[in-house]
Structure formats: C-alpha cells, structure tokens
C-alpha cells in the first residue's frame, strides 16, 4: 500500500475502511431482490462500484494483484451460460423454458420464490463483472499523443 499510484492518502484510508460495507450492501440487495426493492441489476451495479472504488483509489497494479482479472472474465461469461442452464432445467423439470420448477416456499421467507433467487444472483454477477471490466479496460487505455 506504499506505491504512489492512485489518489491521496485520505481517499485510500477511507476506501480501506469502507469497501467491505459497500460489498455487503450490494450482496444484501441481490439476495433480497424478491422481497424488497432492488434485485440483480441494482445489486450488481453496487458490487461493481465496490470494486471500482478500490480501482480508482489505488490504481491498476494494486487491483490486479488483489483480483484475478482473467477469472472475472471467465465468471462473466459463465454467468450468461448459467442463466441458460437454469432455463433448460426448466424444460426438463417444469415443462417450459425458464419455468419456475423449484419450490415456491412461503411468502416473505428468504428462500422462496423458486428460481427467482438463483436468477437474481446470476444476473448480479453478470452485471457487476461486466460493468467493472468495462471501466477496467477504459482505465487501462492510454492515448498516446499522435503526431
């Protein structure tokens, strides 16, 4: 944490203290998408912003030491496939593509509403990873002065 890349000391220290809170709130929003406002889209953006917080405050080198960027690429591609897998499981078990084949549970419980919860998680991973990676690529893109 000694390199000069990134922002000033104040931003770095506040990021260090607050990044777990942002991540926890994003995951909370994803997991309660079927009970309260929010869901996979909103929670995914919050997760992406938590990672971006570290990227903007500490710079690229620190972030690439912390996260495995190649793995995030794989995760992003895999989540789109997982959505399809859940849809095809719906054909075999519920009779239609993306049918809600899991148990409905009781209203207002966390594990309820069948496939809505897994789909929310898949969408959260998808949205979060892709938005983080876009800014990652944009931040690494340096324009060299043409002549």
């Amino acid at each position: 944490m000694q390199q000069n890349e990134g922002m000033t000391l104040i931003v770095k220290t506040v990021t260090r203290i607050s990044v777990w809170m942002i991540l926890l709130y994003g995951i909370y929003i994803i997991f309660h998408g079927h009970l309260t406002p929010g869901g996979g889209f909103a929670g995914g953006v919050i997760v992406a912003l938590a990672f971006l917080n570290v990227l903007l405050a500490y710079g690229r080198k620190f972030t690439s030491d912390w996260l495995n960027i190649g793995f995030l690429h794989d995760l992003e591609a895999a989540s789109a496939t997982l959505f399809l897998v859940i849809g095809i499981l719906g054909i075999s078990m519920g009779g239609a593509f993306l049918a809600n084949f899991l148990t409905k549970g009781e209203l207002f419980a966390l594990i309820s509403a069948g496939t809505i919860l897994p789909l929310n998680i898949v969408i959260g991973i998808k949205v979060g990873m892709s938005l983080f990676l876009v800014v990652w690529v944009l931040a690494g893109f340096k324009i060299e002065k043409g002549d």
């Binding site: 998408g33 079927h34 009970l35 309260t36 406002p37 869901g39 789109a80 959505f83 399809l84 849809g87 593509f97 993306l98 809600n100 409905k104 549970g105 009781e106 209203l107 207002f108 309820s112 509403a113 069948g114 496939t115 809505i116 789909l119 929310n120 969408i123 998808k126 949205v127 892709s130």
Partner: peptide
C-alpha cells in the same frame, strides 16, 4: 403464482424471463 413479494421482480424473472434473457444478451 411465484411466491415473490416484489411483483416487479416476479415479472422480470418469472412471467417475462425471456425479456431478461434478451437483455442479458444485449448487455453481453
């Protein structure tokens, strides 16, 4: 039908999950 308290969420991920599939494709 779906067991979800948030009706918007029940529409995007259950009744109209095809839309979300298309949306994910567009985002990808």
């Amino acid at each position: 039908d779906t067991g979800a308290a948030n009706l918007v969420s029940s529409i995007i991920l259950d009744y109209r999950a095809y839309d979300t599939l298309g949306e994910i494709t567009v985002l990808f």
